[in-house]
Design a protein around this nucleic acid. Structure first.
Length: 732
DNA sequence: CGGATTTAACTTTTT
DNA sequence: GTTAAATCCG
């Protein structure tokens, strides 16, 4: 086993001190690119190897699954395979504990986790019940108010004291009902995964003690992103041994809107007076110019700990600031720049990231990239597991695991259509309320429910039988087999197969993809279960799945980019009212958070940064004149170079060239893309498809299992195909 | 009453 | 460009 790599010699003095200060609370203020993950992993390795601490006594929490996986892999590289360390996200770690301790709060261990969409559906149902018109208050707004309350540890009862606006009055009525329904459904929302463990720990000291004794060393990554609930939870768990090690950077706190409380890091020293504090200020990532620019921006914030990154890296190129005509040109110029860099400086496409403030901006960039034929990956936007058809199948699975989940039940009882309309469902609901039986149980009593049509009765019966049948099968066949037969048996697949439109085809492909994911899960997991799969699915995000293996440009929001690095970074749409967003400029704290977000974006870059703003931008279907962002004025001018597009080429030239390139032939990027392995698909390649014949790849999207290509075939048909399922081979 | 089709509204960032 | 609500049709 290659375990010999572990030595503290490679650390700088501050890093080394941080790693070896094992006892008592420790705060590490780790600037961007200062080796934060390195310190975390070396510390865990040090605890195990040098201190002889049992891996089982270590709890490390992160915010993303990707960070957790990376940490695990790097520890393994240092000291070889270690079993029993808890490394996971806040949500997944405590969801696990909740499954074990669910009996303490009278929940089924098969509880389901509601995502935002499920939450909104539930809130909408409650609002109907309470006669709160959804037209006056958006269920979404109510949901976020409740979420915010939970993150700040405000109970439904506490909420009563906050009355004021009519909206708050409405939330006061909805919040307790919402909580009651979650309980009835044996469901938790995301926030409950943090707050409910706190309640359990408070009410059952012996349970708390079990975990306090177990976790002798607790480590928290991205500490600046913790909210009040997470902070309390960590405090509970680490209270006894007091070996709490937190790593964070107040300058990178960008989740205030999600309840993250920057005071958790600013007040760490007063909360833990015996705390040791170490600062990591040497940056190993970026050029001096990039750091100077980043510092000039973020140092304008008032609520921050004073620090300044330094680096031994070269000065590097100046930051380019582009003034472009519109979003279309912005995309086109970025493409052009990428091509130039690939040719001149021998870069790979994977060296580039294009970042933006809002997901909506990805569209024009995507258009530009598609025209050019360069492959790209979009991280974020609509998640795979959020697609309608995927959620429909998942709802069936949720209901089979947990029949009390009425949100899922109502989602699918008439999907595909079984002749059960709104009116029939209302009658069943009424019966279930009056007889105090769960909604699913009521489905078995159709003969006692008045006024149901025979069509509705037949539909309800077949639905009920279906779910009962599969519930009985859960212990007999594997999750993969079960879902496979389920999508056919339920009629979901048939429903889409009859739909010959391209959307219907897409949906079938997405369902097959889901089945593949379940098959993979079943094969990879020791004790696969549907509940286990559902939990995994509800706690992943797109960045978790992103990897840099395929040679493509990455497009993502600035938020998603946190924790990542790229040689070249574009930040687009650096305009007033977009970045910073218009609603953020009024409150000082919000503006400072936007500024930190800009700082995060700048410090993702190792070598080169390009900022662009457009004079005109298409927003919500109309073209708007734009002004450069105030953040551009805040940049250290000596590190920047201003470029106006007019000095290069006229607009009409640009578009003509773009159209010509698109209409003629695809440029052959393969000739200068360094690592085009034989199996790799790239835009411009020709393929032969079993059904459609010869075609050319216009665009490659995604990676691995989920990789999709857009192909234009000789007969003029353009199709989007999932590589894994599409029957084609590449031809030279 | 149920299902399909059309219309309208909406886009900050996400575990 | 996507999805939920309103409208229409059988």
């Amino acid at each position: 086993m290659g375990a010999s790599a572990f030595s503290l010699q490679v650390l700088n003095p501050e890093q080394s001190k941080a790693v070896t200060a094992t006892e008592g609370p420790v705060l590490i203020l780790a600037g961007a690119g200062s080796g934060k993950t390195r310190v975390l992993t070396y510390r865990i390795a040090y605890l195990i190897r040098e201190m002889g601490i049992s891996p089982q006594s270590i709890l490390a929490v992160t915010f993303t699954k990707k960070a957790a996986i990376e940490m695990r892999e790097r520890i393994q590289k240092l000291i070889g395979e270690v079993h029993g360390i808890w490394i996971g996200t806040f949500h997944s770690s405590f969801a696990k504990i909740l499954r074990w301790e669910s009996a303490a709060i009278q929940y089924s261990p098969n509880f389901v986790i509601y995502d935002t969409d499920d939450q909104n559906r539930l809130i909408k149902m409650i609002m109907e019940e309470l006669n709160v018109p959804a037209t006056r208050f958006h269920p979404k707004a109510v949901q976020s108010a409740i979420s915010h309350a939970k993150n700040s540890l405000v109970d439904p009862e506490d909420y009563f004291n906050q009355s004021g606006s009519p909206f708050q009055e409405a939330v006061i009525r909805i919040y307790p009902e919402y909580q009651k329904h979650l309980r009835q459904n044996h469901a938790f929302d995301f926030d409950d995964l943090i707050t409910v463990p706190i309640q359990i720990f408070k009410q059952h000291p012996h349970i708390l003690e079990k975990y306090q004794d177990r976790f002798e060393y607790v480590l928290v990554d991205e500490y600046q992103d913790t909210n009040k609930a997470q902070y309390e939870l960590i405090r509970y768990v680490s209270q006894k041994k007091r070996n709490l090690f937190v790593v964070g950077d107040d300058d990178q706190s960008i989740y205030g809107w999600r309840g993250a409380d920057i005071h958790n890091i600013l007040n760490f020293e007063s909360d833990f007076p015996e705390a040791k504090v170490f600062r990591l200020e040497q940056n190993y990532r970026s050029t001096k110019n990039i750091l100077a620019a980043a510092h000039s921006v973020v140092s304008r914030n008032q609520g921050r700990k004073v620090k300044k990154l330094w680096s031994e890296n070269p000065k590097g190129e100046k930051i380019e600031i582009w003034e472009v005509d519109d979003d279309r040109e912005e995309a086109y110029k970025a493409v052009e720049k990428v091509q130039e860099e690939v040719f001149k400086n021998k870069r790979s496409f994977r060296d580039f990231a294009i970042l933006y403030r809002t997901n909506a901006q990805s569209r024009s960039l995507e258009d530009g990239l598609r025209r050019s034929g360069i492959s790209y990956i979009i991280v974020g936007g609509v998640r795979f597991y959020d697609r309608r058809e995927v959620k429909d199948v998942l709802a069936y699975m949720k209901l089979i695991v947990n029949p009390r989940d009425t949100v899922s039940l109502k989602r699918i009882i008439n999907y595909p259509a079984r002749g059960i309309g709104d009116a029939s469902l209302r009658k069943v609901e009424k019966w279930s309320r009056e007889n105090e039986r769960p909604l699913f149980a009521a489905l078995a009593y159709i003969d006692e429910i008045q006024g149901l049509s025979s069509r509705a009765k037949a539909g309800i019966k077949s639905f009920h039988d279906l779910i009962v049948k599969y519930t009985a099968l859960t212990n007999k066949i594997s999750p993969a087999e079960l879902t496979h037969t389920l999508v056919e048996d339920s009629g979901i697949l048939r429903h889409y197969k009859e739909d010959m439109s391209p959307e219907g085809q897409m949906r079938i492909e997405n369902i097959s993809e889901l089945l593949t994911a379940i098959r993979d899960y079943t094969e990879e997991t020791e004790k696969p279960s549907i509940a286990g799969f559902l939990e995994e699915v509800s706690l992943v995000n797109d960045v978790d799945q992103w990897n840099d293996k395929s040679n493509a440009i990455t497009l993502m929001t600035l938020h998603s980019a946190k924790g990542l690095e790229f040689p070249v970074v574009f930040i687009t749409g650096v305009e007033e009212n977009l970045f910073p967003l218009s609603r953020s400029v009024e409150k000082k704290e919000d503006l400072e958070e936007e500024r930190r977000l800009f700082y995060v974006g700048l410090t993702r870059a190792k070598e080169k940064v390009i900022l662009s703003w457009a004079q005109n931008r298409r927003l919500y279907n109309n073209i708007e004149a734009r002004l450069p962002s105030r953040f551009l004025d805040e940049l250290d001018e000596s590190a920047c170079e201003f470029i106006s597009s007019r000095s290069i080429r006229s607009m009409s030239d640009l578009y003509e060239t773009a159209d010509r390139e698109f209409n003629d032939a695809m440029p052959d990027y393969e000739s200068f893309s360094q690592e085009t392995g034989s199996g790799r698909l790239l835009a411009g390649q020709w393929v032969l498809h079993d059904m459609f014949g010869k075609g050319q790849i216009l665009n490659v999207q995604g990676y691995g299992e989920k990789q999709m290509v857009t192909v234009r075939f000789k007969n003029g048909i353009q199709k989007k195909l999932i590589v894994k399922y599409a029957k084609f081979k590449s031809i030279v």
